[in-house]
Design a protein around this nucleic acid. Structure first.
Lengths: 370, 370
DNA sequence: CTGCGAAATGTATGCGCATACACTCGCCGG
DNA sequence: CCGGCGAGTGTATGCGCATACATTTCGCAG
């Protein structure tokens, strides 16, 4: 690692010019076989690896696509820096008393999106660079990321609008998920609304349920908003009076949902406190929290109350009963983002596109199926 | 996106030289406040984002660290390309009949490693570039990755040794996990051996068990090998005769473990077919498979047979009983890799380091605790 | 006011590569 | 034998930035 060899070194060693070395690597067919062999030998002997920076500069494109995520670790200030890695300490033996399984949904979610993006990028010979918009210097970090890539896929709201606008003047930007927005960027959505609508239509049509309530999430969640809209769509289509608001709102966590469920179950005896025939929850965690409490209270699911979620996390598959839900196409989200980026790079002048990713309704026991 | 503005454009607009523009960005303190303001204004107006390639070239370092993973999707040929992303199709409603939860262990594992690496890289202002060594052109891809980064962390065996050697002549390389190896690179291991040893010592010392068997994994798994060694260590330390080989080997999947368990449980009546007091499994999936079969066969865990795993996957936390296991420090693995890379960059001449990451033994019900 | 050192800014160069263009050479038809 | 042509290769240039070094400006003591 003294000093990395360059084309010049290789050229000299092979007794050719640097142009030939470059050609051997980029357009091998333009070079005679013999020359190629000689150059390759030199490359091996010297341990030559082309500089991506130089190549990117000369070729005017880096071959890298960026992926920008919000921080899921909650480390937003320099003060919050985690402890350094422990190295060489001895094994620790601890009694694990249990407690909630740590919420890995976000991580898994992001992991899947990345996987999809990487896969799609790999198909076209692109590399992927990831960046997490976190901390005080986030703007800087995002800027640097933008400076290093040919295109940037950004998870909704991980980057402030103004910054995004600034960056978009240099590289194509596609925004994943988030609220419908009419800006200059390409957008890609998961079809929350159609998914919920299809799910609710199933409850109404196939199970004959007409007494449904929607348990929402945080008011500022665009996903929640869309899902509620889908709920309303389905009811109206069935001629059922739709509410203006969710019957209640949880915070999208299982624990929060439990508290909420406790309150609702506690009101059962009171006038107007009866549980609806079906509870359509805005996400899986909420449905799981409700399931916990309902089961505990002796309310049969789906016998007494039908329960559904949204997201398709693993836990809905192992609960009893298994929960009917709508699966988020996470891998596809990543793939579609890269695909969109690619088509944008191919035709920079095309009008901003909006892609709606189809979801999949998974019918399981909690809605009364089977 | 006509043509991205450069330092020259900014300089002209701000009425300064390019050096000043560069300084405003890199060493703001060397510039008068007024000049700074003017330059920043020009930057905003033009939508200037510095080119990472040019910067990397001029500064002789990219500020990017690479992370190279093996392919977990099993896509190793161009023929295996997945279908294109479906876009704009309607919602699909399917009856989900269940079946095994898809094995997301690898994904989660890799995701956590990435998370750790990204976190640590972020702390020091580095970006992270990921690459999956897959497909026919894998060597090329890895080479390109190496050409774009200041250092490369490679997950064991995702890159052939000769390629790794070639790359290492350009950038520092650290190898994560894998078999102990005496090469020129820095290595970082998860302490499989010490972890298993500590776990087994717990079984022997605290629970007084002296009849233990080790259920291994694939013969070519270095992890398995290390874990068995830890098992032997503990037995020998306790003066118990240790076997030369695992009592049996599974394929590290839950299904495979079930088959194996069925055979072992079926032999119970036969001479020498009695189950040991404790089954130390080489990974969690194996332990879970055994738990399935044992429970089914009316064998009480931990009453009749004590069961332990290794890895610390979520399922061991939700099984009944919860399984005592050794947690892999996945996030730490990523963090330590980057840390090692950093120290290597700081001192390229230091001798190759080997880091052993401490693990954590999680005592739960399946070993008889509580 | 003047002069001098420090602060601020400008000029020039090179990082390593791709590539347009120039050039050489061997071959063929005329 | 000559001209022309194409394959193969070399030469020269610029990509956008950091930075060493040269130059100018500023602050301030004398």
């Amino acid at each position: 690692m003294r000093k990395a060899p360059t084309v010049y070194d290789v050229a000299q060693r092979a007794g050719v010019s640097i142009a030939t070395v470059s050609r051997v690597l980029r357009r091998p067919d333009d070079v005679r076989e013999h020359t190629r062999t000689v150059v390759h030998a030199a490359i091996q002997e010297l341990g030559y690896v082309p500089s991506g920076a130089a190549r990117g500069l000369a070729a005017r494109q880096t071959g890298v696509l960026g992926l920008c995520f919000p921080d899921v670790d909650g480390i937003d200030e320099l003060d919050d820096l985690p402890d350094p890695v422990r190295i060489g300490e001895s094994v620790e033996v601890v009694r694990d008393v249990g407690g909630p399984v740590t919420a890995r949904w976000s991580n898994l979610y992001l992991g899947e999106v990345m996987r999809g993006a990487e896969l799609e990028a790999w198909r076209t010979g692109h590399a992927v660079m990831i960046g997490v918009a976190r901390g005080l210097r986030r703007a800087e970090a995002v800027n640097e990321l933008a400076g290093r890539v040919d295109g940037l896929a950004v998870l909704s709201r991980s980057v402030p609008d103004d910054l995004l606008g600034h960056i978009a003047r240099r590289v194509p930007v596609v925004v994943m998920a988030g609220p419908p927005q009419d800006d200059e960027h390409d957008h890609i959505f998961v079809d929350n609304r159609a998914g919920t609508r299809a799910l609710v239509e199933h409850l109404v049509s196939d199970h004959g349920i007409r007494d449904l309530a929607f348990v929402g999430g945080p008011v500022d969640s665009p996903d929640d908003h869309q899902r509620f809209a889908g709920f309303v769509d389905a009811l109206q289509a069935a001629g059922i009076r739709a509410p203006d608001e969710p019957v209640a709102r949880s915070d999208f966590t299982r624990g929060g949902a439990r508290d909420l469920a406790h309150r609702m179950v506690g009101r059962r005896g009171q006038p107007g406190g009866a549980l609806p025939r079906a509870l359509v929850c805005s996400n899986d965690q909420t449905a799981l929290g409700f399931l916990d409490v309902l089961t505990e209270a002796g309310v049969d699911v789906p016998g007494d109350v039908v329960l559904t979620g949204f997201d398709g996390i693993d836990d809905t598959q192992t609960s009893a009963p298994r929960i009917t839900t709508v699966r988020q196409p996470m891998v596809e989200l990543g793939r579609a983002a890269v695909e969109l980026l690619r088509s944008r790079l191919a035709d920079p002048s095309a009008p901003a596109a909006t892609v709606n990713l189809p979801v999949r309704v998974l019918l399981r026991e909690s809605c009364g199926c089977r």
